[in-house]
Design a protein around this nucleic acid. Structure first.
Lengths: 331, 331
DNA sequence: ATGAAAGCGCTAACAG
DNA sequence: CTGTTAGCGCTTTCAT
């Protein structure tokens, strides 16, 4: 592939002028600039990114590390991040940690090695233990879940309050034995939703009953099994608060297997307004989170941190909204 | 951040030895290697990727350019690619072209500029016009859709035959006026599915009727509108072949708005076995594509091309399978 | 087995 | 406004 030196030779100019022309430095004689452009075109010149990064000591790429590419919640975040980033001239690379500390660690390493400009990460449960992120000096912001250490920039959802609202809503709709199916202990969102559930129980004068709480990975199969267990108890719940939409799939399947109709037999509210939520029968009541805005806020925050690494760290908390549909209705 | 020179100084060795030790060259004295490792550890040394890439003239990152991160079909491909790539020591960066030639072009540029080792792309409808990919000399393979030019490595699904099967299936189940809701003209998968639909009509002795064909973007809203149009015709269809699962969402919504029950009133078969397909009422009949295998095959193919750029180009075609559930059943 | 030194392609002082 | 030149951090001959 052509180098800047070849372009310079063809244009009969120095590499410095070529570099300047190509980078749009305004002091270049327009006529020479034209010659440069033509020569570059002619040779099908492509700048050499690694060389440029080496020289400039910075890159224009951001890493976004999420735990599940297949979850619409995270892909919506990705869109938000992308939109902001590209407007500012950054590229975004999406990394899928799969809720696995090892993969996460590996991507963090790649980000450091490639000297990426910054990283937005939705930390896995155990990121905490290894202070990974804090160590590297790549700017970063946590999204959806704070770092265990609790410091650094982050943008979160007030998921605890949303869980509380959802629980109160179920209680008001006449459900009495409300269970909670949440994610793995240690994952902030899972813990918060559980806490909000307990807040809701307390608020409606209900006794917390540990037999009604189940943890499972944020996946359909785990939730399916957990739901089955719950439903097969001697005193099964009459309503379920489910911590994400992937889990909701497993839960709805379990209900069907037990011939229980959501809403009429067992109330259900799940986090995340998946595209299919209105298509299932009956339409699923959900807590909808501002995923896209989570992405735009995180990206904006990261860019300001990149611009000023000494700025005090900040936490943004966005609200979530209950969308009551028919799985939280008895009739 | 520490450089290799600092590590060398601390270890009391030359940078050459440090480089060798760090890269596991076997001729290094084990004791010196140990000293190197310790010094690197001590300084929290992170190799400088751009410098390494510049010197080595290659990188270990692959780009995967897909048209919709929110579509489970593509994210499944991504998983396949990732699994193969990481096993071979490559990282994968996911790029979302959003079915937009401009974004696609931009990512292709990034891949070229960053001298990525290769790219796997699901080309947008118009990639054809601009011979973009062929131009760059980054190795690439097309996945899911061939390049317009038709040359180069690719791995596809026999989607035309799958569409034919699905159409015949609908006919056999007693549906008579079968419509086809496909993607934009020019997108290979959209065209192929339409062609297969026509094959199926012919095979079952039916007349193709252009009034029963609709094109829309591969999105829920477009499909929703197109379905509504179709259903509001004087002689509406009694069955719908839908070209992907995102569109299926729009179609099912349209059906509900017109108070039509899938299966009983209007037969439906959609491409892609989305996670929610069994949850809707009644469970959705689908054509399931081997998305994950598409990803692994594409990655394997790309790696062999990287290893041997002169190898003859190849085309892999994987089969798809009809999964008949209840939306293609009258009773 | 180790070290010295060149050079990958680019940008940014600096000089003119 | 343009050219000369140094050097970013690393790997890899080439000597030793």
């Amino acid at each position: 592939m052509a180098t800047i030196a070849e372009v310079a030779a063809l244009a009969g100019l120095s590499t410095a002028t070529v570099s300047r022309a190509l980078n749009g430095v305004p002091t270049v004689d327009p006529e020479l600039a034209l010659r440069v452009w033509r020569a570059a075109e002619e040779l099908d010149y492509q700048p050499h990114g690694p060389a440029r990064s080496l020289r400039r000591q910075r890159t224009a790429v951001l890493a976004l590390i999420i735990s599940d590419v297949e979850n619409p919640f995270f892909t919506a975040i990705a869109r938000g991040v992308e939109d902001i980033a590209r407007a500012e001239g950054y590229s975004v690379v999406l990394c899928n940690s799969d809720e696995d500390v090892e993969k996460e660690r590996r991507y963090l390493d790649v980000a450091a090695t490639e000297r990426m400009a910054g990283v937005i990460i939705s930390p896995t449960a155990e990121t905490s233990r290894s202070g990974v992120v804090g160590a590297a000096d790549t700017p970063f912001v946590a999204v959806d879940r704070p770092l265990p250490s609790g410091n650094g920039d982050c943008v979160l959802v007030d998921t605890r309050d949303a869980a509380r609202q959802a629980t109160v809503h179920l209680a008001e709709r006449g459900y009495d034995r409300i269970a909670c199916l949440t994610g793995p202990t240690g994952l902030a969102t899972a813990d918060d939703r559980l806490a909000g559930y307990r807040d809701g129980l307390r608020e409606t004068g209900r006794q917390a009953d540990e037999a009604l709480v189940r943890h499972s990975p944020y996946r359909a199969d785990g939730a399916h099994e957990a739901a089955l267990q719950l439903l097969d108890e001697l005193r099964p719940p009459d309503a379920l608060l489910v911590a994400n939409s992937t889990m909701a799939i497993g839960v709805l399947e379990a209900l069907r297997e037990r011939d229980l109709r959501p809403g009429r037999d067992v109330g259900v509210v799940a986090f995340d307004d998946a595209p299919w939520a209105t298509l299932v029968d009956p339409p699923l009541s959900v807590v909808t989170q501002p995923a896209y805005e989570l992405g735009t806020s995180a990206a904006t925050l990261l860019l300001s941190r990149i611009a000023d690494r000494s700025r005090p760290s900040s936490t943004t908390i966005l609200g979530a909204r209950l969308v009551a549909r028919d799985t939280s209705r008895r009739d």
